[in-house]
């Protein structure tokens, strides 16, 4: 059974790019264009991993992450954000993220990090 990844971003081009990337790598991919969609999808599809943008309309990434991490058997969360301050990153880990990656990122890096996260016990 393939792992499930939820990608959350309000930038359609990034969303499309990542969806294509992970489908090709064999993951089951869900996409959300804002925070509330993301919450609903976490509940309905129980992904193994969530790639999460921070700056989004309605609910922001931090809040979504807190929501996710409050669940039992919470999925791993990787923040993908253009917010470059140290304090942004710290806040990301505070709300329970497993990883905080800065935009722009390299696809290969991202795939590698996800492999490590999901296969680890």
């Amino acid at each position: 059974m393939s792992s499930k990844i939820l990608i959350v971003d309000d930038e359609i081009n990034i969303l499309m790019s990542l969806e294509y990337l992970f489908k090709r790598k064999g993951y089951e991919v869900f996409i959300a264009r804002n925070g509330s969609e993301a919450k609903a999808l976490v509940d309905s599809s129980s992904p193994d991993l969530v790639l999460l943008d921070i700056m989004m309309p309605d609910v922001d990434g931090y809040e979504v992450c807190q929501y996710i991490k409050a669940k039992e058997n919470a999925p791993k969360v990787i923040f993908l954000s253009a917010k470059s301050k140290k304090s942004d990153e710290e806040k990301g880990y505070e709300v329970g993220a497993d990883l905080y990656l800065h935009k722009p990122f390299s696809n290969k890096d991202l795939v590698q990090k996800i492999k490590e996260l999901i296969t680890s016990p």
């Binding site: 930038e11 081009n13 253009a82 935009k103 722009p104 990122f105």
Partner: peptide, 20 residues
């Protein structure tokens, strides 16, 4: 800070898609 954020967003998309 805001400007760099705004610059990074399209850059991210460009890089990711170019890589694909």
């Amino acid at each position: 800070y805001t400007v760099t954020h705004e610059l990074r967003t399209p850059l991210t998309a460009i890089r990711s898609q170019a890589e694909l």
